[in-house]
Design a protein around this nucleic acid. Sequence first.
DNA 1: ACCTGAACACCGTTCAAGT
DNA 2: ACCTGAACACCGTTCAAGT
Lengths: 224, 224
Amino acid sequence: MCAMARPRKPLLSRDRIVETAGALVDAEGLAALSTRRLAAELGVSGPSLYNHFRTKDEILDAVADAVSAKIDLSMFDETDGRDWRTALHDWAVSYRAALADHPHVVPLLAHGPGRRPAGLKVADAVFGGMVRAGWPAAQATYIGALMRYFITGSALGSFARGFVDDEAAYDPADYPHLGQAHLLAERQEKVDEGAFETGLRALLDGLALQYETGVRGQWTARSS
Amino acid sequence: MCAMARPRKPLLSRDRIVETAGALVDAEGLAALSTRRLAAELGVSGPSLYNHFRTKDEILDAVADAVSAKIDLSMFDETDGRDWRTALHDWAVSYRAALADHPHVVPLLAHGPGRRPAGLKVADAVFGGMVRAGWPAAQATYIGALMRYFITGSALGSFARGFVDDEAAYDPADYPHLGQAHLLAERQEKVDEGAFETGLRALLDGLALQYETGVRGQWTARSS
DNA sequence: ACCTGAACACCGTTCAAGT
DNA sequence: ACCTGAACACCGTTCAAGT
């Protein structure tokens, strides 16, 4: 074994680092990603990573952006963009599916796009789509924000998984209405899906109401 | 200075630890809370904490629950509970205010109540209130879940703060609709508040639609 | 340019020792 | 019962040294 300090062909690349980091986070969670562990997975020593990224946070940013890049945005492509409701619905479903595939990454995404290109692309597409559909700029901004609240919230905090599967944890004297709460854990997927669908429908119904009111009044009160 | 191993009166208590930990997290963020730092703040050595909590995570759980305990639940007290919409609205506003006061704690709360008593009290109150107001159990569960999605999502990821205050970050060639995005940072509070209010109104309007439909059809299709 | 080992200043947690 | 210092197995990051 010769201790070669620099190989003729680089052992690492940004892409390979991000890919391996993403796989590790998906498999074992954010806490499992240390620079040493990641380096070991890449067959390299810890400090080597710093030749390609300035900090561990930069690596995590890249992992997060790779997930954002999987969100379908094609529904905002239509040049007329009239049917904003269908577009918003399909986007929300695709958005949530992308996050659900990588639940451990959601906390990284929840704080906004920052300087991540794919995250910015998402914000750009939904804002552009809503404006084209006739929403005033201020409302289009709100829609991008509130949809993100709802979707990342639902992906981050699986409601059902947030309860422990242990009947003894729910003393009827303390929580008179949680007698069935321990069942939530096993029905987790159905409950979270039902809540997401119910909430998304309510959100879109409510926005449709605001759209009609706005169009009738030509957005006099709230446009900016 | 005598090196006393055990004082006659305990130096620590669970309450004092949680209070100091919460203050530290509020002031400097989650990353600033190490067991050694917290112990120093309490005038004590690191391992002392383990006489009162089994792990650091247990301390964080208690900090999170203290925030949940500040959420107003009195709107679900009324024995008739007919006006579910007003109750839900007021609860959402109080919920969000509690989280906004402790933004660094939100990630700890986002994963659900677990075994935290105050978190379970919240889930119990909203579920009970909705059922009393006439919602079927399944829908009441969904409402608790989707409201939490929206509220924690909005508290966790301030939309506006998620954009950097740097015009150069938004190349028009890449993001044709984000020309004003750098302004979001300074208008942060107004944007987040507007998005929250718009989303909450839409959510409640949409749920009212589903309530009316359900009552008319006596929840035949979706009750369980 | 790109990798290495050694080193620095940290972590959470355990444990025997003190009173 | 409740605190202590020492210790273990970790961290992220810097840096001089190698090729």
